[in-house]
């Protein structure tokens, strides 16, 4: 077991990403956050709070459940529980920042992009992740990354966030041949 990020490092990464989002978009105009259930939604809420502290503005934040858009529904044996998508703003012509905890194969993001396309036509979609662990299977990249972690495919990246999991924030790499 290898601790990659502790509570402080997660906190700083979130604040840095918040600054980068503001810098890239030249402020908060039309910027909306969309967190992918479950931990992406937690991170989106934290980013929203960080942006409020920096700019003094509350930007819209929604929660996306991508399970209905997965490409492996017919293959996986354990069926995911479908939870509500809670996006109470019109995404059309907005600059959406999609938020997730770990970027890996890119298939979750592909599903999220399809889900967002069914909700409207955003001006653009950017991607923010806490961890990029590599091994992409689709042509997808993140715009904002908390930390790049080289991993082997047989390893597991475990993200713990206080709001959704037991215990303090951390990112841990487990398992693998080495």
């Amino acid at each position: 077991m290898n601790v990659i990020m502790d509570q402080e490092q997660v906190r700083r990464a979130v604040i840095r990403i918040a600054h980068e989002i503001l810098e890239r978009n030249k402020g908060v105009k039309d910027v909306c956050l969309v967190g992918i259930r479950t931990r992406g939604a937690v991170l989106a809420a934290r980013l929203r709070e960080a942006i409020r502290q920096i700019e003094g503005v509350d930007i819209p934040a929604g929660v996306l459940d991508i399970n209905l858009y997965r490409d492996d529904l017919a293959i996986i044996s354990k069926q995911p529980v479908i939870r509500e998508t809670l996006i109470d703003f019109d995404v059309t012509d907005q600059k959406l920042v999609l938020v997730d905890d770990v970027l890996y194969t890119g298939r979750t993001i592909r599903a999220a992009l399809d889900a967002l396309a069914d909700l409207g036509r955003p001006a653009c979609i950017q991607l923010a992740v806490l961890v990029d662990r590599g091994h992409r299977e689709l042509p997808i990249r993140a715009d904002f990354v908390g930390k790049n972690i080289p991993t082997a495919k047989d390893q597991e990246v475990k993200v713990v966030l206080a709001e959704s999991d037991q215990g303090p924030d951390s990112v841990v790499v487990q398992g693998g041949a080495a």
Partner: peptide, 23 residues
């Protein structure tokens, strides 16, 4: 309870402009 919980998510789908998911 699982059916009710799942149905709550699907109710949101029916309220959208595009009332369709690829599941």
């Amino acid at each position: 309870e699982l059916i009710l919980e799942t149905a709550r998510s699907f109710k949101e789908v029916s309220s959208r402009e595009i009332k369709k998911v690829p599941a």
